[in-house]
Nucleic acid binder design. Structure first.
Lengths: 240, 240
DNA sequence: CAGTGGTCTAGACCACTGA
DNA sequence: CAGTGGTCTAGACCACTGA
């Protein structure tokens, strides 16, 4: 139990909230009260309360004080793991099979729809992710060559384009849409499913600043893949 | 531009990272350097750098300094909106139709699987969420009456159990699994789909502290519903 | 072993806002 | 208008760890 003091204060108040000792809407002691209670300076108390406020557990209002927050339609953390890493962790062998690779000229409706640079060529890549040589997902990806010129020279005979991008191109914003769709003829053929089989459809677009980097559409075999999202209180300090 | 100084420092460094002026792996000035550069105290610099580290944009290492982080398989924020709210925002009318409501005795395999209290009755609720009287999703929910005794007295003739729980029971942890499945006979009947039609399947369990509150399994009409997750840099200060 | 970040102090002035 | 949180200062001691 060698926690910093601000961490100790934070976790004690957190525990009070989680166990119901402090109920939603109730007022916390003021920073001044907590200073005296813990015999520390106001900065230390403030750091603890700011962390709780950042985690959504409390709300701070000037003149009024700090209050236990009422639970909301929380956002949850969705892990978007690297597919290769996930397959290897399952104890399976990963392979990416490239099936198509084309340069798309600038200004096509396709590029505009993807939200990528309108003034530059795009690289279009299609392929299948295999686990022990069984198709798990297929993807169709567009990459802005204006943003990532090095991409044009990559072979992708074994490494997936997604993994390469993750390693080499810093991105700062991303949006993912998740849906359930029936396998089209093309998807069914790639994934060796029957047409109409349920697939988890994931569409992701990433940006660096305001510049679009890539858009990818993935179809996962519905019976073999799921995503997990979690919400929990602020990370516990190690050993707590 | 009336930002606090620590916020100004943070956003300037953030901008340098996003625009590529500072590249992944490169070293930032030390806290001491930044103190002099901005003419402020170390606490102020530290606050800015801590915020960047919390957002995953930089990594701080003792003795070595602070470095621009290399992009990782970031987690994304998944909005789990209240279904009623979402339907109303689409301009449609929301209704929850209760189809079943049973008390499940303690100790059944069902309860154990749901991870709910083994020593207490569970309330089982089934129903359909309708948008303009068209089924959008069906759900099967188990609620621990040990954790939420008031639940037994609720009618749920109009309000959904999920919305009621959200309003009345603070929860602190949740886990959601998302998959794509084919509609079973029962699901197809409730959603007025053909058997085998793709459905977005969402299973969520919530806890208060270590006490299980509820488990819910929802099937969404695949063609009518999708989820969106986002990742972005730390929230911008208002007006920045 | 020296430089770096982690934490903390004991103050200060201020903006905001609800009693 | 007084109490609250937001911010900031100018120091301090310490733990860690890579040059």
């Amino acid at each position: 139990m060698n926690l910093p003091l601000h961490e100790k204060i934070r976790s004690e108040i957190e525990a009070d909230i989680l166990t119901g000792v402090r109920t939603p809407g109730s007022r916390l002691p003021t920073e001044h009260d907590l200073m005296q209670q813990y015999g520390c300076s106001r900065m230390t108390v403030s750091k603890a309360l700011s962390a709780l406020a950042g985690g959504g557990l409390i709300e701070r209002r000037k003149r009024a004080g700090s209050f236990v927050a009422r639970p909301k339609a929380h956002s949850m953390m969705l892990d978007i793991p690297d597919l290769e890493q996930e397959i290897v962790q399952r104890g399976q062998r990963y392979r990416f099979e490239l099936s198509e690779r084309t340069i798309v000229p600038p200004g096509t409706p396709q590029a505009r729809e993807a939200g990528l640079a309108e003034e530059g060529e795009l690289l279009m890549i299609a392929g299948v992710h295999l686990a022990d040589d069984v198709p798990l997902a297929c993807e169709l990806r567009l990459v802005s060559l204006a943003a990532v010129p090095e991409m044009a020279a990559q072979p992708f005979d074994d490494d997936s384009p997604g993994a390469w991008l993750l390693k080499h191109v810093p991105w700062t914003e991303a949006e993912t849409r998740i849906a359930s769709v029936a396998a089209s003829t093309g998807v069914a053929a790639q994934l060796k499913l029957s047409v109409g089989a349920p697939c988890l459809f994931v569409e992701r677009r990433t940006w660096r600043g305001s510049e679009g980097i890539t858009q990818v559409r993935q179809h996962f075999v519905g019976s073999a893949y799921s995503l997990v999202a979690r919400f929990g209180p602020a990370k516990r300090a190690p050993g707590s």
